[in-house]
Design a protein around this nucleic acid. Sequence first.
DNA 1: CACTTCTTTCACAACTTCGTGAAGCGAGTA
DNA 2: TACTCGCTTCACGAAGTTGTGAAAGAAGTG
Lengths: 166, 166
Amino acid sequence: MTSATERDTQAVSQFVERFGGILADTGVPRMPARILAALLTTDSGRLTAAEIADLLQISPAAVSGAVRYLTTVQIVSREREPGSRRDVYRMRDNVWFEATFRKDQMLVMIDEVLTEGVEALGADTDAGLRLDETREFFRFAHGELGSMLDRWRVHREKWMEERQGD
Amino acid sequence: MTSATERDTQAVSQFVERFGGILADTGVPRMPARILAALLTTDSGRLTAAEIADLLQISPAAVSGAVRYLTTVQIVSREREPGSRRDVYRMRDNVWFEATFRKDQMLVMIDEVLTEGVEALGADTDAGLRLDETREFFRFAHGELGSMLDRWRVHREKWMEERQGD
DNA sequence: CACTTCTTTCACAACTTCGTGAAGCGAGTA
DNA sequence: TACTCGCTTCACGAAGTTGTGAAAGAAGTG
């Protein structure tokens, strides 16, 4: 029997796999994607390594590798209760913004290589112009993404208030 | 000897490989990425299949597969001169915007699966709230990207005028 | 200083992805 | 209808990923 407050484990697991799968399609490695989806479904936003291994039916080694990925890209942070040997992983705030839009390093590289390209082709050629325009687009996008984070914060605030009101 | 107007083939090729490599790192399959980079360096924005094969040193089969990818994601269009048997591929306008930000279909799927998740967890739980907020973020992002295209068009116009002025 | 508990590292196997060569196919000529 | 030219399809081999089990490592505890 499942009480009213008890979670429908079946349905939650299905959500984890589906959403993890979509994330994987967008380029996130499989295991990190599944772990992220699993963290999303917790009330606390935290899971121990053992819980992750159990939920997703994967080996401790797989957990280890996947959380290393997630921590290096700063999507989850590792914590440990004093006096415990268990690692606890927590979703950081703004994960979605970070994960979907923080491509800073990539944009720098794109800018550099396009600059080389403009020089190689000559700024006065049609091809050179196209590259220059491409570079300008990425610079524009870079700026837009920066201001978008602020707009999201405002939007989120309003949304939370309205949701409260319901 | 290379005349002033002749292209530095070496440098252009290096650019193609570097930029193609960066694109590949962002998730675009290798061959399509290289072809895209090669098209960028042409004055006309057009290349025949044979030219692509020659420039990139790949087999006709590889060209075939890669351009199929590029046409299905609508980044290049295929054309054919009347009375010729050669296919010509042309970069479509706004490729960068399309390629980097048009994730419409993906956003629809994310919205759907997150809606399922909210139901599975219960909108009144902490986890349900997190999923709801996540869904709201993607909806917000979707709207932002739509208006961003307009802003880019305006920005591009201004930029072109200034560039002219130099 | 052993013992327990949990995490990480490592070599390997399974699975995918990707580009090639060869053959096939379609469309325009003679 | 036979010929040619160019694109596409297909099976295969090479290369790269990814998750596993086993063993080592690290950090509390008695």
